[in-house]
């Protein structure tokens, strides 16, 4: 899961980055409205964590701009106010959820999973493909009843493929999910992860479409 955090407090932004990474997400941080707009235009994110009060304006403006562009990326607002009118305004401006500061990191992660799931049009919390089950909340994968140990990156690659079984994901797309802006992308990382995943969940589960990318094989 690739997440954009728009938060101007450096400590909180750093905490969100580390914390969400622990729950398996790839996180990019920006600290003002202008950078947030640029980031949202440039990259594809699975969800946005948006602070309302930013040094160069309101998070609501970013949200309104995003929705006016027809971008339906799920957005979770962080608000410091208990005022319900503020929350109502946020939700009415197109936010998918909100959390009041200070919040619980696990709750934030869970809510992000929920809004991305809803955003992708899935009702079930777990991802399924054939005998393979992926639970983003507990960060576990099982084949049948047997648990499969996965690294953070392997989990992310598998989740990207399983979100839409049968749809081809390009290598670049998978890389985007794996790495934040500051991170160095290793050239054959995706191939290595796919190779390891095939060893763990079964060679036939992941199909290589030459020249295009990879996809989950859909059960006949």
């Amino acid at each position: 899961m690739r997440i954009l955090v728009v938060e101007d407090d450096p400590v909180l932004a750093d905490g969100l980055k580390s914390g969400l990474r622990l729950s398996g997400a790839t996180v990019d941080c920006v600290d003002c409205c202008t950078d947030a707009r640029t980031a949202l235009k440039a990259g594809r994110f699975d969800a946005v964590v948006l602070d309302l009060m930013l040094p160069d304006g309101s998070g609501l403006d970013v949200l309104a701009h995003l929705r006016s562009q027809g971008d339906a990326t799920p957005v979770l607002l962080l608000t410091a106010l208990d005022d319900t009118t503020d929350r109502v305004r946020g939700l009415d401006s197109g936010a998918d959820d909100y959390l009041g500061k200070p919040f619980d990191l696990d709750e934030l992660a869970a809510r992000l999973r929920a809004i991305t799931r809803r955003g992708a049009g899935r009702a079930e919390a777990v991802l399924k493909a054939g005998a393979l089950t992926l639970d983003p909340a507990s960060f576990t994968a099982t084949v049948g009843d047997a648990p499969v140990p996965l690294s953070r990156r392997e989990f992310a690659v598998l989740a990207a493929l399983m979100e839409r079984p049968g749809v081809i994901r390009s290598k670049a797309e998978i890389e985007e999910r794996l790495y934040g802006w500051q991170e160095e992308v290793e050239s054959n990382a995706v191939e290595v992860h796919i190779h390891n995943l095939r060893n763990k969940v079964g060679r036939e589960a992941i199909e290589t479409v030459r020249g295009l990318g990879y996809r989950m094989r859909v059960a006949e």
């Binding site: 909180l12 750093d14 905490g15 580390s18 410091a80 200070p102 990191l105």
Partner: peptide, 19 residues
């Protein structure tokens, strides 16, 4: 502003502690 300035550091503290 006050709510933001008081609660944001608290949110930062809590998040970092959980991390």
């Amino acid at each position: 502003f006050a709510a933001h300035e008081l609660r944001t550091p608290l949110a930062g503290l809590k998040t970092q502690a959980q991390v």
